[in-house]
Design a protein around this nucleic acid. Structure first.
Lengths: 190, 190
DNA sequence: GTCTATAACTTGATAGAC
DNA sequence: GTCTATCAAGTTATAGAC
């Protein structure tokens, strides 16, 4: 386990703060307070408060898009791909819960440039999801339903996992993960 | 159709603004601009910016809790109840899309008193969901899965419906609603 | 890299004329 | 009920000493 640099700590505390209060309601003063330095010292490490948001959101966006690209270049079938993608989400929440929450809830506060890039990445990711689902429908593995409704239902249903309490409890997380997959693939009915 | 009072217009515009920018990033100045009056005139209608948030969140919270209470006092079986509750969500999005979004995303910015009340209502609502699902599991209609995971997956999956584009197109909305129910009850697999 | 001091600005809200 | 004028407080960010 590598020792964390001050800058890394800063990003982690920023993600935590932005998650708790939302980006606009988070002040540089409070962030400094949590890190244990004076507000102005923040600017020895980052150019602006916005820079923190940009890095948190973009790193997470690239995490998801890279995971998706790996699937695309493999030859997994749609059902296998869906399993891997759900694991990707749950694993992200396990490793970087605050970043994922900020990525999900605060991206709209990104500055124009970063926001455009973010939306591009997201659109591509969602397009890749769509393609997988369409393929699954065509192959008869997935139900004949509007694939966009299917995709948005899946992605939305994965959003609450930020709030799983015991993210360190790997065994419990694995069980929850299996249950979520079962619910999405086979539904809630017995 | 009753003519809207200035105050009603103010609440609607506030909900719209809070949805677009988030509550902390929304300024009284911009709200006044959208309504077409000077910032100070806002205070002839409401006591504070917070009051707007409180009313938007609480009205929506009571809409859901009342819908749930009606189900509880009826004698619907679990599956019927779930259908009605999903309809309740989709209908809310149809009628008051901005309010539902603010209710979902901005409640954490409520002042302490209102927030406590909000959380109470939400906890009760979620508890009632849990009870319905537990009953469904006991009766063998629902799958043997952690009912909290089941509930959170369902509620989370309903959150994206704010973003349905054609909320006025009743026919399309009805089709989407049927598809969502099918996905949740029977899963995405064919 | 951290500090103190402060600039430059935006915020929610009020006072008082009309 | 709406306006103009303004306040008090909070914001991000910078300058310059150490």
């Amino acid at each position: 386990m590598k020792r964390k640099t001050r800058k890394e700590i800063l990003y982690e505390e920023a993600a935590q703060l932005f998650m708790e209060k939302g980006y606009p309601a988070s002040s540089v003063r409070e962030l400094a307070d949590r890190v244990g330095i004076e507000p102005s010292s923040i600017y020895s490490h980052v150019k602006s408060k916005e820079e923190l948001l940009v890095k948190i959101c973009m790193d997470t966006a690239y995490y998801f898009s890279e995971g998706m690209n790996e699937i695309e270049t493999s030859d997994k079938n749609p059902i296998e791909s869906i399993h891997i993608l759900i694991d990707l989400h749950i694993n992200a929440v396990r490793v970087l819960p605050a970043s994922v929450t900020v990525f999900t809830d605060e991206w709209k506060h990104l500055p124009a440039n970063a926001k455009a890039e973010f939306i591009d990445i997201r659109n591509k990711y969602q397009g890749q999801w769509l393609h997988i689902l369409q393929e699954g429908i065509k192959q008869g593995q997935l139900k004949e339903v509007n694939p966009m409704v299917m995709r948005d239902t899946i992605l939305s249903s994965l959003r609450w996992v930020h709030y799983i309490s015991d993210k360190k409890d790997l065994k419990k997380l694995k069980r929850t993960s299996a249950e979520i997959k079962s619910l999405l693939l086979e539904g809630i009915q017995a």
